[in-house]
């Protein structure tokens, strides 16, 4: 059937286009990080080359890059961790209790994200300066929590709502306290959603550039800030930029892979018929 094979061809071409747009830049970044400067600047581009680790040696010799990765890790781990710690009990309350102002609170969490980050950059800068928090890990962690916490609350609330109410009732009858119900029933069963929100949060704080640029100077520059700092000379060290990029992407990828094990669907299967 010609129409069917034509359909397949279009399907294949579409996939190829998506693949090229999504995967090729990553491939180019990683492969470029193993090239020498002359291979990098060659025109037409070289596809086969002798790989070199010189760029990575350069990157890790640069204390600034190493510090930046450490700073990024500290900020991402704490902002994500604290958001999960604060967000999951809030989500439990939103999912299972009725209280005054519940829907307003819910809307407030969503509406937080309506505001463009740049609008708040200046007020937050002034606030941080007056509090003496500029160029500290704390200020970035606090700012990032305001972004990540709503994500955690949305996703976890939705996840908690999908847990059958009978499980909570059964636990109550068995003598479980509210905290035990949250800790022993909701948290383990909500893990897939919590993992997703943690991944989003981690990626957000790892990649965030605007506030990191505005609120840090030298001591706590994060990886994205340092990556941009290479782009200011007369000669662009492409190899080093690409190697830094690869180093920056790596931790997020590893984190996402580790956490995604918990994203198994159908975890609640078998609870109720």
């Amino acid at each position: 059937m010609p129409s069917r094979s034509a359909g397949r061809l279009l399907h294949g071409l579409g996939l190829l286009a998506v693949f090229a747009v999504t995967v090729f830049p990553t491939y180019w970044m990683v492969s470029s990080s193993f090239k020498t400067q002359s291979d990098l600047l060659a025109s037409p581009p070289v596809w086969l080359f002798t790989p070199t680790l010189a760029n990575y040696a350069d990157v890790f010799a640069d204390q600034k890059v190493v510090n930046a990765v450490v700073n990024s890790l500290i900020v991402a781990v704490f902002s994500t961790g604290l958001s999960v710690l604060l967000g999951t009990p809030a989500a439990f309350a939103l999912a299972r209790y009725d209280f005054r102002g519940k829907s307003d609170l819910w809307f407030w969490f969503i509406s937080n994200r309506f505001v463009s980050p740049i609008v708040l950059a200046l007020p937050i800068y002034i606030l941080a300066r007056n509090l003496g928090l500029l160029d500290t890990h704390l200020v970035l962690i606090l700012v990032y929590i305001t972004f990540i916490l709503p994500i955690v609350i949305w996703i976890a609330t939705d996840q908690f709502r999908s847990i059958p109410k009978e499980l909570e009732e059964a636990a109550r009858l068995e003598g479980a306290s509210q905290f035990a119900i949250f800790w022993r029933i909701y948290l383990p069963l909500g893990l897939p959603g919590i993992a997703v929100s943690a991944i989003f949060g981690f990626i957000f704080s790892w990649n965030e550039l605007l506030y990191a640029l505005v609120l840090t100077r030298r001591d706590v520059q994060t990886a994205p800030v340092v990556a941009t700092s290479f782009m200011s000379g007369y000669e662009l060290p492409w190899g080093k930029i690409m190697a830094t990029g690869t180093v920056i992407v790596l931790p997020v990828t590893i984190f996402a892979l580790l956490v995604s094990r918990h994203m198994v669907r159908g975890l609640t299967m078998g609870a109720t018929k």
Partner: peptide, 11 residues
């Protein structure tokens, strides 16, 4: 109480 849906803790 034994629930219609059993309400066993799946994890």
């Amino acid at each position: 109480m034994v629930f219609q849906s059993y309400a066993l803790f799946p994890h």
